[in-house]
Computed example of a mutant assay.
Amino acid sequence: MTIDLTAPNPSFTLNNGVTMPALGLGVFQTPPEETSAAVAEALRIGYRHIDTAASYGNEREVGEGLRASGVDRSEVFLETKLWITDYGYDQALHGFEKSAAKLGVDQIDLLLLHQPLTSEFEKTIGAYKALETLLADGRVRAIGISNVMPDVLERLLEATGVTPAVNQVESHPYFAQRDVQEANARHGILTQAWSPIGGITHYRGDVERSTLTDPVIGEIAAAHGLTPAQVMLRWGLQQGRSVIPKSVRPERIAESLDVFRVALSDEEVARIDALETGERGGPDPDAITLETFGREIPEA
């Protein structure tokens, strides 16, 4: 997908016609006590898209930050995710109720399944069918998935009726997941990048690597008067991905939003593409099971 990156707060149009700001604030691993202030600050300076999840434990504080910001609810795109312990049809419907109550909203803009739970796929299908019901009832405006690989995507599409609007996956210069992006594109699904600046530690042998200190990214950043993080966000956006960087520091929150003034050349994009390692930083989606990752999501 392509967007006009010269526009203020550019948006993607999802496959059901809903528009979603291309860049949002992520709150993964943001402590609840810091979440409200971070969200309020982001909205104050111009963000209009916030990404959270039931398993992050900070949905309530995201809602508090929204209300504290003074920005009208209708102007903010709220995205959250159901955790695997709330999979199954009825369980997912209740999972939505828990998330909506914590956020303090009647309608969620984008609701995702956080993991595919391939070991008990019938529960994944049941949960996705619940998302379809919520969409039909107008309780959510768009539905999607996260960490779903191409083979699992095909299984899900065969068993359900609504094509996901978004697939949120790990995607950054060291692990772009181009096969996932291509599968998404074939079905009109927007790829959304979590860890878009490669915040997860990577290793080559015993040597720790970081995208933030990568010399290629640093050279490109210096040429444009940008930070390495800004270069990586711009790289993702120029290639048609939604990005949701995380920060609690006001200066970093503002920095991430200021990526629309400088375009990378085709050569620079290719140099960043060439940094691919093929090494996943996060967990293998097939390794996510209720036994190893199950956790109860508390009531509102």
Rank of each mutant, 00 (worst) to 15 (best):
18 V>M: 14
83 W>M: 07
278 G>H: 02
240 G>F: 11
261 R>Q: 11
281 G>N: 00
126 G>F: 05
234 R>A: 04
124 T>G: 09
232 M>R: 13
45 I>S: 02
62 V>E: 07
135 L>P: 09
274 A>C: 09
229 A>P: 03
92 A>K: 10
266 D>A: 15
7 A>D: 08
31 P>D: 02
220 I>C: 08
59 E>F: 10
235 W>H: 14
208 E>D: 02
275 L>Y: 01
131 L>H: 03
248 V>W: 01
120 E>D: 12
277 T>I: 04
181 Q>S: 08
288 I>P: 14
214 D>W: 03
167 N>H: 09
300 A>M: 03
267 E>D: 15
146 S>E: 00
297 I>D: 00
275 L>E: 00
35 T>Y: 06
290 L>S: 11
220 I>Q: 08
107 Q>G: 02
265 S>Y: 12
25 L>M: 12
152 V>N: 01
142 A>V: 02
226 L>M: 15
256 S>G: 14
74 S>G: 11
115 Q>M: 14
295 R>K: 13
170 E>W: 01
133 T>K: 15
249 R>C: 01
172 H>Q: 09
75 E>Q: 12
187 H>N: 02
179 D>P: 08
243 V>H: 08
283 P>R: 01
200 I>G: 00
96 F>R: 08
1 M>P: 12
67 R>C: 08
99 S>H: 10
78 L>N: 04
264 L>F: 06
201 T>H: 14
105 V>D: 07
163 T>I: 13
275 L>C: 07
18 V>N: 14
86 D>P: 04
204 R>Y: 00
97 E>D: 15
268 E>P: 11
280 R>A: 04
282 G>I: 01
156 L>R: 03
263 A>C: 04
135 L>E: 05
293 F>N: 13
271 R>N: 04
244 I>V: 15
40 A>L: 03
110 L>C: 09
220 I>S: 11
147 N>Y: 04
166 V>T: 09
175 F>V: 05
258 D>A: 15
256 S>C: 12
